[in-house]
Amino acid sequence: MPDRGTAARSGAERPGPEEFVHTGLVFRSLRALADAVVPVVRAAHREGGRILVVLGDVEREAVSTVLPPPLRRAAEFRPRSAFYTAPGRTLAALHRLARSSPGRPVTVVGQPVLPEGDPLALDEWRLLDSVLNLALARHRIRLFCVHDAGAVPAAALDGVWRTHPTVSDGGGPRPSPRYRTPDALGAELAARPLAPLGEPAHRIRISADLGALRAEVARLAARLEVPGGRAEDLVVAVNELAANVLEHGAGRGTVALWRRDGRVVCDVFDEAGGLTDPLGGYRVGGALGARGHGLWITRQVCDFMEVRGGPGGSLVRVHLRL
């Protein structure tokens, strides 16, 4: 059996016709960034592919000014703040991008969000970077994730090597010796308990009447002064997760709500412990049936979603920025 490095190297050198290629691109100057991106755009244009560039303002200007006019016209430039809003929504956008270009290769040069002062957000964006290798495995996308070595925290930069099969760090792409598969990274997260939040502001028993549950969550969201759009997202998330408890779990559980640190946080507890996969809601393609579909929706309406489970039950915690 080939080792992990050999597998990554073979995939990087000989991508199949429907294979996802995921490269971390670490740069130390804007000139180095431009020097790395221009050949990528040129190669994608030569093969008639769709090209998407999603960078910060400064980085986008550095790249666009050195692109020859034909390449600049061929590339679609999108604002980073609109594309990297939440991990689940970013994955959904990439999935739609792949499906909207059947038979045509897609190249994306993107600059993911790696927040320094928010450990939860950093973990969740790192998990997305890892799970892309699984969720988009059968799509013809070449994704180059660019990271500024001078601005990205050291811990986050280490995560680039752990979540990308290949990394380019000034000397061309090469297999990452520290790469971890999505399932391996998920197992690491599963072993870490969720942070204690103290006594919730509200707790609700899950019943078979989902309409009544939605109304109660909407009422409690208003009491917590959750803005209208975010309150609707919260209601959708709780409905999907409670439906999972009723249809696929123990049929018994609770919903707990907090408002803290500029977010509303919601725990949905299932007295059965069947849901244990931290990658739940990221596995595109219906492998988990209706349950997977509900988690996929929840990933998109929330900003972050954490999953833990065991013999004592399953817990899904969702976070919505206010």
Rank of each mutant, 00 (worst) to 15 (best):
D158Q: 14
A184N: 04
E199Y: 04
L97E: 15
T85A: 14
P153C: 04
D118C: 05
I141G: 01
F77L: 12
A187M: 05
R174A: 15
A187E: 15
P79C: 07
P119H: 00
S100D: 15
E188W: 07
G88I: 05
H95T: 15
P153W: 06
L136T: 02
P175T: 01
G88P: 03
H202F: 15
A201V: 10
R80A: 11
P70R: 06
T163Q: 02
L71N: 10
W125R: 03
S64D: 13
L128G: 06
P112E: 00
D169V: 10
R80W: 09
C145Q: 13
H147T: 12
G110R: 04
A92W: 08
H202Q: 10
V108D: 05
A187F: 00
E124F: 04
D169P: 01
G172N: 09
P193I: 06
A201L: 12
L122H: 10
L136Q: 00
S130N: 10
L132D: 05
A121T: 07
R140C: 02
A195V: 15
L185Y: 12
E199F: 01
R96Y: 01
D118M: 00
A154N: 01
A92F: 08
A191C: 02
F83N: 01
L94E: 09
L157G: 09
V108F: 07
F83A: 14
V113Q: 10
T85H: 06
R180Y: 04
G110P: 04
H139N: 12
E188H: 11
D148Q: 07
R80G: 01
P70W: 00
T163S: 13
T65N: 00
R126K: 08
L127I: 05
R142I: 00
P182S: 02
R138C: 09
V131W: 12
D158A: 15
W125H: 13
L185R: 13
I141C: 07
P68R: 09
S100W: 07
A156F: 02
A201K: 09
Y84N: 06
L127G: 03
A155G: 12
P105V: 09
A154G: 06
R174D: 03
G198W: 03
S64T: 12
R140P: 00
P70A: 04
P68F: 04
R80D: 06
A98F: 07
R138V: 08
L185G: 11
P153V: 07
G117A: 13
P175I: 05
G150W: 00
D158I: 03
D183R: 14
A191W: 02
A149H: 07
P69S: 09
P165V: 01
H139A: 14
L136V: 05
L194D: 14
G150K: 06
A201H: 14
A151P: 05
R140S: 11
R78S: 12
A201T: 11
G172T: 02
V66G: 06
L189V: 10
L157C: 01
A75T: 11
